[in-house]
Design a protein around this nucleic acid. Structure first.
Lengths: 340, 340
DNA sequence: GTGAAAGCGCTAACAA
DNA sequence: TTGTTAGCGCTTTCAC
C-alpha cells in the first residue's frame, strides 16, 4: 500500500533537468546555477523529499551508522551509556543501531553478524556476562571494522577500550569498610572471566591483605549467571556462625534487597552489617539508611567510547586506544558507623 | 583502512560462475546444482561472507527494519518496552533502530525524518512530553508508512494505538485511597496535552466525584516539563494549612523522594500521609514502607505494538488497530492504613 | 553549469 | 540449471 517515495528522478523529471543536477543542488557542494538550485530545493521541500540513505550508503560504501551491543537496555548503567553514545553520534551526523545480547554469547554473536551485514561503520560493545571466548570479535577485527569496547571490555584484542578503574575503587571502598571497623567483609563476586569482576575481586583481596585481614573463602560469594539469588545469598550470610559485619553487594538493587532482608531479620544497618552497593543509582539517596555506593559515569563512558570510535571511523586509522574513566566511592549512611 | 568486504562477485569470480548463480545458491529458494551450491556455501563460509543488507534493501525496497522513537532509554518503562519490541522484531527477522526524543518535539521530528530517510518499514512511537502538535506524524501517515503509537499515544490520527487504561486504574487507585480513610488527596498531574496525563486526572476527579469529596484545586499540582520539582512540591504540600493525607505521585522515584522528605519532616507513612507511586518498579518492594504503585506491563505493550506493526508491514494493510493493555493497582504498605 | 554514463551489491525476469 | 541484463536511488567522473 505504501506509496513510492519521492526520488531525485521525480524532481528531475518535473523540472525538466537531469538527476545529476538535482543531486548537486541538493548536496550543495558543487556549482549549480543559483536559480536551478532554488527551484530544486523548493520542489524538494514541497514534495517532502527525503533522500534514500540506503542508496547513498550503497554508493558511498559507508552508512554513517554505528552499531552498539549492550547486555540489556533495562540495566540503567547501559541505558545511560547509550545516552552518551547517541549524543555524540548524532552530533557527528551518525545514526545508531542498538542490539541487546541479553547476556548471551550466542545472541551477541548474532547481533554482531547482523550489524556487520548492515555495514555499520564501527562498533561499540559491552560484552555479555556469558561471553568467555572472542572468536566473533576477532572476525570483526580481521575485517578492519573499528571496534571499541566499553565498561565490559575484552583484553588482548586489537581493539580500543574505555573502562573504569574497578580495581582501585573497590580497594578504596574495602579500606573504607575496614576503617569503619568492619573485619568480616562479605563480597559478592561476578563471573571471573569478566575483566571487571576480576578486578573488583582483586581490589577487595588486596585491601584485606594490606590491612592484614585474613581472607575467608566463605565470605566470597560467587554470583550465578542469570538467576537472581540475592535472597538466597542473604539468608546464607545471615545464618553463618561468624556473621559478616559488612557486605559488598554486586549492585544497588541487590544491596537494597539485602538491606531489606537484614532489617527484617532484626539487625541494624550499618551497625550490625554495613552495606555497600554498586552503580550509585538515584534511589540510593532516598532509602533508609541512604546507601553507599560506587559511582560509574555511565554517560561519560558511552560518550568517550563513541568519540574514540568516530575518530577511528573518520580517520581510517584504528590504532587501539585505552581510556580510563574515573569511578568514585560515594559514602552515605549504610557504611557510616559512628565510632565507638 | 577497512578492507573491502567479500561480495557475491568475489565468490563468483573465484568459482568461475556467474553471480546470479551465487545469489541463488545463497538464497536457497531456486534450483541450483547441488554440487555448485555446496561449493558456493563452502567458499562463502570460508571467506566469512556477510550479505550486504544495504544492497538487498535498496533492491527489495524494504529494509526489514523497524524504527522506534521513545522519550528516553533511561526511563525504565521505555527500556522494558524496547525489550518487548526487540524480541518480537527479531523473531520476525527484523532489525530495530531506536531513537530518543529526549522529551523534545524538535528532536522527535528530526528522529522521524532520519528514520524515514533510512527507509524503515514501519514506526513505533511513544511521543515526547513536549509534543503538542502532530504535523510530523501526519507527514509519515500520508506517505503510508505503518505507524503504531504505544503508551504515549496520539488520538485523531490514522494510526494504531497500544495503550493502557490510565483512567480506570487511576480511578480505582483513588477509590482505594478513599477507602483507607483519606479525604485530602493530592495529585501530581502531568502535562495535560498528553493523553495519559489527561486520563489520569480524569480518573482522579471522577473518583472524588463518585465519593462526594469536593475537588480542591490546590491539591492538584501541575508538574513542570523537564525540571524535577519533586522537592519543591513536597515542601509546598507539607506547608499547607490543610495538609493532604495522601499523595498520588507522578512516578515511583518521585514517590520515594516524597516519602523520604515526609519521613524527614517527622510524619508517618501511611498514617499521616499515604503515598502511591506509578510504574511499579522493583524497588517498590524493598523500601520501607513498601510502596503501593500502579503496574503497567511495559514489555507487553512493546511486544503488542511490535506485533501489530509487523502485521501491517507484512500485510500491507494499515487499517488502524486499537489495543488496550490492562494496568493494575498494587497495594503495599504505603497506602495500607490500619482501620481505626 | 549541466548531462550522460557508470557503478555501489544485490535480485529477478528473461533467455538460453 | 545457468548466464545475461536491467535496475533499485544515488554520486561522481568525464565530456561538453
Amino acid at each position: 500500500m505504501s506509496k513510492a517515495p519521492v526520488t531525485i528522478k521525480d524532481i528531475a523529471r518535473l523540472l525538466g533537468i537531469s538527476k545529476s543536477t538535482v543531486s548537486r543542488a541538493l548536496s550543495g557542494n558543487a556549482d549549480v546555477n543559483p536559480d536551478t538550485k532554488r527551484k530544486v530545493l523548493e520542489l524538494a521541500r514541497k514534495l517532502d523529499y527525503q533522500p534514500n540513505v540506503v542508496a547513498v550508503s550503497l554508493k558511498q560504501q559507508r552508512t554513517n551508522t554505528l552499531g552498539v551491543i549492550i547486555p540489556e537496555t533495562v540495566n540503567r548503567f547501559f541505558a545511560k551509556a547509550v545516552g552518551g553514545i547517541q549524543k555524540m553520534a548524532n552530533l557527528a551526523g551518525f545514526n545508531v543501531i542498538i542490539c541487546q545480547s541479553d547476556e548471551s554469547y550466542v545472541t551477541e554473536k548474532k547481533n554482531l553478524q547482523a550489524l556487520v551485514s548492515s555495514r555499520v561503520d564501527g562498533l561499540l560493545v559491552s560484552v555479555s556476562r556469558e561471553t568467555d571466548r572472542y572468536d566473533h570479535f576477532e572476525a570483526v577485527i580481521s575485517k578492519s571494522i573499528p571496534l571499541v569496547f566499553f565498561d565490559r571490555i575484552v583484553e588482548g584484542l586489537e581493539a580500543s577500550q574505555v573502562y573504569s578503574d574497578n580495581y582501585e575503587v573497590t580497594k578504596e571502598a574495602t579500606h573504607h569498610l575496614i576503617a569503619q571497623g568492619c573485619q568480616r567483609i562479605a563480597f559478592v563476586a561476578g563471573p571471573q572471566h569478566l575483566y571487571n569482576s576480576r578486578n573488583r575481586l582483586r581490589g577487595y583481596l588486596d585491601a584485606l591483605k594490606e590491612s592484614n585481614i585474613p581472607v575467608r573463602d566463605n565470605y566470597i560469594i560467587q554470583s550465578q549467571y542469570k538467576l537472581d539469588k540475592t535472597d538466597e545469598y542473604t539468608r546464607h550470610l545471615l545464618k553463618m556462625k561468624e556473621r559478616p559485619d559488612a557486605v559488598f553487594a554486586i549492585n544497588d538493587y541487590a544491596a537494597l534487597e539485602m538491606m531489606h532482608a537484614i532489617k527484617k531479620a532484626g539487625l541494624r544497618v550499618p551497625d550490625d552489617i554495613a552495606i555497600l552497593g554498586f552503580n550509585n543509582e538515584n534511589i540510593c539517596r532516598f532509602v533508609e539508611p541512604a546507601l553507599s555506593s560506587i559511582d560509574h559515569p555511565a554517560y561519560d563512558m558511552g560518550a568517550a567510547a563513541a568519540e574514540i570510535l568516530l575518530n577511528q571511523v573518520r580517520n581510517e586509522s584504528i590504532e587501539p586506544v585505552r581510556r580510563l574513566i574515573q569511578s568514585r566511592l560515594v559514602v552515605r549512611e549504610s557504611t557510616h558507623r559512628l565510632k565507638r
